[in-house]
């Protein structure tokens, strides 16, 4: 690999200094599971790498009054094994547990998944469905929040400016009546880029009726997006195998609208039916789709 400069800030103040001097040939380094490979494959030629692994303020998961904050340096393993995340945000726990392999999850970070700017990024879909925001820091020492939906530029364009870094991912708590789920389809069961991924958040009342729904889909075009038509199908309905069938049909239509004429359209419009079934099982249980409720 070519000669480059490494900066190793030990805290947020030192990070601000590094960001102040950063330009378009600087790269932020989290776990390195995308960046180091891209440098080695000569897809990227940074002059400067800012190594975030020494900034301890980025390594915590904090429960706040109305939200959870996941530090930019928290690994995917730490996220998916966190009991609070598993209980309150299963979609995020499921997404992080299905990225790569154990070795990759032990290093990779959510912030890196967003910063790497892939349209197939697995953590983006549940974060959008969960209304997550990014807490950012720039070279002027300014902190600010951006909704994940706004932060993602799409089409593989860089999501971050050269002089800014993600500090935390902030996710508001859901009502106790809400649940969430994520599913991905790849060419393998593990260590696979998603060909299709999706996240659903539902609010179900005491009559077992869906009173609110959010459906987000990824790997279906330049940017993960919200499927309003799928949400309308779920609203005010009870989850059962008939609803699953309607959900599958509307998402097939959604695929046709999202990627008309693409080579993968025929595959994805069928594969999404399987994804729907898995999402329903994760949200409502297997007995729901067997028609036992």
């Amino acid at each position: 690999m070519q000669m480059m400069k490494i900066e190793t800030p030990n805290n947020l103040d030192e990070l601000i200094n590094c960001l102040k001097n950063a330009d378009s040939s600087s790269c932020l380094l989290g776990g390195g599971t995308d960046l180091i490979i891209n440098i080695n494959n000569k897809k990227l030629y940074p002059n400067t790498i800012i190594d975030l692994s020494g900034v301890n303020e980025l390594k915590e998961i904090k429960k706040n009054g109305s939200s959870i904050s996941i530090g930019a340096g928290v690994t995917l393993t730490e996220v998916c094994e966190n009991s609070f995340v598993k209980e309150k945000f299963p979609a995020l726990a499921q997404a992080t547990s299905q990225v790569g392999s154990t070795q990759i999850r032990n290093r990779a970070t959510i912030a890196g998944n967003i910063g790497n700017s892939s349209p197939c990024a697995d953590t983006v879909v549940p974060l959008m469905a969960l209304n997550a925001k990014l807490k950012m820091l720039n070279g002027n020492g300014e902190y600010y929040h951006i909704p994940v939906d706004k932060a993602i530029k799409g089409s593989g364009k860089k999501n971050l400016k050269p002089n800014e870094a993600i500090i935390e991912i902030v996710i508001p708590y859901l009502k106790d009546t809400c649940s969430s789920a994520f599913y991905k389809i790849g060419s393998r069961k593990a260590v696979t880029i998603s060909k299709l991924n999706g996240a659903v958040v539902v609010d179900i009342n005491l009559n077992n009726t869906i009173v609110n729904a959010k459906v987000f889909l990824g790997s279906l075009g330049p940017k993960a997006f919200r499927s309003i038509m799928a949400e309308k199908v779920l609203m005010n309905k009870k989850p059962n195998k008939e609803l699953l069938s309607e959900f599958q049909n509307i998402l097939m239509k959604q695929v046709d609208e999202a990627i008309p004429g693409r080579g993968s359209q025929l595959y994805k419009r069928h594969a999404i039916k399987g994804m729907c079934e898995e999402l329903f099982i994760r949200l409502f249980g297997e007995s729901c789709i067997r028609g036992e409720i």
């Binding site: 490494i6 380094l29 390195g32 180091i36 490979i37 190594d51 692994s53 393993t77 032990n106 290093r107």
Partner: peptide
């Protein structure tokens, strides 16, 4: 204590 792919770890890390 964690299994990692050493090809993705920058040595300084």
């Amino acid at each position: 204590g964690d299994a990692v792919n050493s090809c993705t770890v920058l040595a300084i890390q």
